[in-house]
Simulated assay, not measured.
Amino acid sequence: MNTVTMSLSEAGAYELRFQSLFNEGRALAFPCDADGHVDMDALSERARGNYLYARAVVGREYATPAVQRCH
């Protein structure tokens, strides 16, 4: 697992979004760079746990994540 350091301008510009396969209104999203790299050191302990869980259940509970620009 790689940890990437992001510039402040990149940190809030994109999110890595894991959409639920079973509930259209449910998703988990994490700040990332344009390439989808999440700085795990910048996440809270709870967010880090959610991120690792979402990655582990891709294809079973969540769809393959997508990089999206934040609004």
Rank of each mutant, 00 (worst) to 15 (best):
66 A>W: 01
15 E>A: 11
32 C>T: 07
11 A>N: 06
48 R>P: 01
9 S>A: 14
55 R>G: 03
66 A>M: 08
37 H>Y: 02
68 Q>C: 11
10 E>Q: 15
25 G>Y: 02
5 T>K: 15
30 F>H: 04
44 S>T: 15
2 N>Y: 12
71 H>S: 12
6 M>A: 09
24 E>I: 04
40 M>C: 12
44 S>Y: 02
45 E>N: 03
17 R>W: 00
53 Y>K: 11
63 A>F: 00
4 V>I: 15
28 L>A: 05
51 Y>D: 06
33 D>S: 06
32 C>M: 08
44 S>I: 01
47 A>K: 10
64 T>P: 02
32 C>E: 05
18 F>W: 08
70 C>W: 00
66 A>D: 07
59 G>L: 04
3 T>R: 13
2 N>A: 13
41 D>M: 08
33 D>Y: 06
46 R>Y: 10
35 D>Q: 15
71 H>M: 03
33 D>V: 08
1 M>Y: 09
54 A>I: 05
27 A>H: 12
6 M>E: 10
16 L>I: 10
26 R>A: 13
43 L>K: 09
56 A>W: 01
49 G>N: 11
37 H>L: 00
43 L>I: 08
30 F>C: 05
59 G>R: 09
61 E>K: 12
16 L>V: 08
30 F>D: 05
34 A>P: 03
52 L>P: 00
30 F>Y: 10
35 D>M: 07
3 T>S: 13
25 G>C: 01
28 L>V: 02
57 V>W: 03
35 D>E: 14
61 E>S: 10
60 R>F: 03
66 A>V: 15
13 A>R: 14
54 A>Q: 03
36 G>K: 09
40 M>T: 14
14 Y>R: 02
49 G>S: 13
37 H>M: 04
69 R>I: 07
22 F>G: 07
56 A>D: 13
6 M>I: 13
6 M>N: 11
19 Q>C: 11
16 L>D: 04
50 N>W: 01
33 D>R: 07
14 Y>H: 14
1 M>V: 10
55 R>I: 02
12 G>H: 09
61 E>R: 10
55 R>C: 14
49 G>H: 07
8 L>V: 12
5 T>P: 00
43 L>A: 06
71 H>N: 12
46 R>C: 03
20 S>H: 04
24 E>L: 02
5 T>Y: 12
51 Y>C: 08
24 E>T: 09
56 A>H: 09
41 D>Q: 10
7 S>N: 14
27 A>L: 07
17 R>H: 06
69 R>Q: 13
67 V>H: 06
42 A>T: 12
25 G>D: 11
51 Y>T: 05
11 A>Y: 11
51 Y>A: 02
70 C>R: 15
32 C>L: 05
45 E>F: 02
38 V>T: 02
64 T>N: 01
26 R>Y: 10
61 E>Y: 01
28 L>K: 11
25 G>E: 10
61 E>Q: 14
42 A>L: 10
5 T>S: 13
26 R>I: 05
60 R>K: 12
29 A>G: 01
59 G>P: 10
68 Q>G: 00
